[in-house]
């Protein structure tokens, strides 16, 4: 049994929170740079240029990339040979609170009905999975509300199949238009149950933008959807152009013979993900 101390997890989570909020992943920056070079529209070039400048400024100044530093989302993989000293949910939540406080990140969590702010960004949204091995992997996403609001889940019929999935996704992104801060990254969960499809869609967004889907068929489907979304012509911030979406990430699971669950989790261009393995 490998023992992992509470303090180790705490410090690692504080670090994840601070880095995710301030440093745009290099592959996202590269994708924005390439898009700017390919764009012919002046407004698209201008917006993409501002995003690159913003990323540099955040890195230098320590200001968060975006004022919406999101809810603190965590996907945690616990190895079967790992023993954690303490309650991991408490450790992660407390570390997240410390990170948001220390990093001067916005506290964006509130009671859903009274809308009273919890003032410390808690609670963290944590998903656990148990895997083989002696590692603990913590993946963190700072998930903004604007793009999250454009996300959808539906239960298609098996007969609708891939064509139905494409129709739903492209229609959704057309309806969303400028709202989710395009160029977006689109996470798609296909299969599972009503509750599992959105969790898959979000998990898909943890795959780095530059990392191809290891399944060649899914990789081809991602490319097909990416092309269709970009043909919408919505462009950066909705002002027109070829760059509406930077990447599509699909995750699938077997589902009931009666069902075809589908979820779309929309991510803005400021894809703030960071992970650590202990």
């Amino acid at each position: 049994m490998k023992v992992i101390k509470a303090e180790q997890i705490h410090d690692a989570v504080v670090d994840l929170v601070l880095k995710a909020a301030r440093y745009l992943p290099e592959d996202v920056k590269t994708a924005i740079r390439v898009a700017r070079n390919n764009e012919t529209s002046e407004s698209a070039k201008e917006v993409l240029g501002q995003l690159l400048e913003n990323a540099d400024l955040a890195k230098e100044s320590g200001l968060p990339l975006c004022q919406d530093t999101g809810l603190g989302v965590f996907y945690v993989e616990i190895g079967s040979d790992v023993q954690i000293e303490g309650n991991i949910t408490e450790i992660i939540n407390n570390a997240m609170i410390e990170g948001y406080d220390k990093g001067l990140l916005r506290k964006s969590s509130c009671h859903p009905l009274t809308r009273k702010n919890t003032m410390d960004n808690s609670p963290a949204v944590i998903h656990y999975s148990h895997v083989a091995g002696d590692k603990l992997t913590i993946k963190h996403m700072a998930k903004g509300g604007g793009s999250e609001n454009m996300s959808r889940c539906t239960m298609l019929t098996p007969a609708q199949g891939w064509e139905g999935i494409k129709e739903f996704v492209v229609r959704r992104m057309a309806e969303a238009g400028p709202n989710p801060c395009p160029p977006t990254i689109v996470g798609i969960g296909i299969g599972g149950t009503f509750d599992l499809a959105p969790a898959l869609a979000k998990e898909a967004l943890f795959r780095p933008l530059s990392a191809e889907n290891p399944d060649p068929e899914l990789a081809a489907m991602e490319q097909e959807l990416l092309d269709e979304i970009n043909q919408l012509g919505i462009g950066p911030m909705g002002l027109g152009g070829q760059t509406t979406c930077l990447g599509v990430k699909i995750a699938i699971q077997p589902c009931h013979i009666a069902s075809l669950p589908l979820a779309i989790n929309v991510q803005c261009h400021s894809s703030r993900i960071k992970e650590v393995t202990l």
Binding site: Q67, D68, T69, G145, N149
Partner: peptide, 19 residues
């Protein structure tokens, strides 16, 4: 806008538009 907290010496933190 709902800005992020101001660092020392600055009037405000990050402050871009919301939807």
């Amino acid at each position: 806008v709902g800005p992020s907290p101001a660092p020392e010496g600055r009037p405000i933190g990050s402050a871009g538009p919301t939807t």
